[in-house]
Amino acid sequence: MLSPKSTEIVRATLPAVGGAIGEITPLFYDKLFAERPDLLRDLFNRGNQANGSQRQALAGAIAAFATALVEHPDVRPDALLSRIAHKHAALGVTAEQYELVRRHLFAAIAEVLGEAVTPEVAAAWDEVYWLMANALIALEARLYEGAGVPAGEVFVPCRVVARHRETADVVTFEVRPLDGRELPAGKPGQYVSVRVTLPDGARQIRQYSLSGWPDDALCFSVKRIPGDPAGEVSNHLHDHVAVGAELQVSLPFGDVVLDEADGRPVVLVSAGIGCTPMTGMLAHLAATGSARRVIVVHADRSEADHAFREETRRLVAKLPDAEAHVWYERPEGEWPAERTGYADLSAIDVPADAVVYLCGPLPFMRAARARLLAAGVAPADVHYEVFGPDLWLGADA
């Protein structure tokens, strides 16, 4: 916890720092990349830097952590820290990088706030930073130890042994290690990082949810991302990575995983490509012959856009107490009117004691969570996975 003196200083300066965080974080990244352009080229997601989402996520994480320290001094925000630690471990982040971040972050704070950053204020916020950084370093060390690898060495050279087209814009890649080693199977709901070398020489990394576990292999599914900036890694995988190609794939990480010891009803709620981790969870439930009540809810643009549509139907049919509810915005054939448009969880009898997993666009997850809480589901039982920077810091998950 923060020292009493630092707590009072941080509480007093939090409005100023929080109000300026939108200026501080862009300046921080500019300073960081000026010294270490290799980090933008080979570690940070260039698309998220270009659209500002990574900067928003950093600002939100710092503000949320500092606020938690002063408002709840005896409770560490472990859910926030665990999510960040898993993301870092999947990228191979190491303890040494935290000092580099601290130096440029505090230079940005001092430049934006000027004389307001007295030595006492700087010392108090330095304490905040190292409380967060040291907690993350410890969590990441345990993740690396649990994976049986030295810190940061999470990437495994793999070969693409199969490629399956799920829809016009979703492809599943099946990979196996080149050296024949046995990869950790991962837990239902986890993801892997995939590192590719792009035409300009950059080695960019993206994270994809595991969608299946064939023998001695891992499957991850990738959606083509149009727009500006387009999904440069996802689109590269679609256009240039065929069966036989080599890929650098990380060990599996992720803190939003199916609780196998919990016998309560499980509800899997997704939209679009958010069905990927849900399919992995559903496949595990079917493979283990789970007797739990399972409710699958999915929303998509149309049948043709719905990845794993037939797989979901097949897996639900294998479970003794499972049901699926699907909504399409633009059905291609005859489709019930009450299942056309956006998903409506009020039309489903969700048990109040259910454990719920969400994945999809942020507005969709916000609306789904609100409906679930209104139905009596406990906030602690609603878990969510975000593709990309986590801009949702208000959830009690």
Rank of each mutant, 00 (worst) to 15 (best):
N51S: 00
N51T: 00
N51Q: 01
N51M: 01
N51G: 00
G52I: 00
S53R: 14
S53W: 09
S53A: 14
S53P: 02
Q54N: 12
Q54S: 13
A57T: 09
A57E: 04
A57R: 07
A57I: 07
L58T: 12
A59Y: 07
A59K: 10
A59N: 10
A61L: 06
A61Q: 07
A61R: 06
I62W: 00
I62C: 04
I62A: 09
A63Y: 14
A63E: 13
A64F: 07
A64I: 02
A64T: 12
F65Y: 15
A66M: 13
A66R: 11
A66Y: 08
A66N: 08
A66L: 11
T67H: 11
T67M: 05
T67I: 07
A68V: 10
A68I: 10
A68Q: 14
A68D: 13
L69K: 11
V70F: 06
V70E: 03
V70K: 04
E71C: 00
H72Y: 01
P73Q: 07
P73M: 06
P73D: 03
D74W: 04
V75P: 00
R76W: 13
R76C: 12
R76E: 15
P77A: 03
D78L: 14
D78M: 15
A79P: 00
A79I: 02
L81K: 06
S82E: 14
S82C: 14
S82M: 13
R83N: 08
R83A: 12
A85N: 04
H86A: 12
H86Y: 14
K87A: 09
H88F: 10
H88R: 11
H88I: 05
H88S: 07
A89Y: 04
A89V: 13
A90I: 01
V93Q: 10
V93S: 12
T94S: 06
T94K: 15
T94F: 06
A95K: 04
E96Q: 09
E96S: 08
Q97M: 10
Q97R: 08
Y98N: 02
Y98S: 03
Y98L: 04
Y98Q: 04
E99C: 02
L100S: 04
V101H: 08
V101Y: 11
V101F: 10
V101W: 09
R102V: 04
R102D: 01
R102L: 06
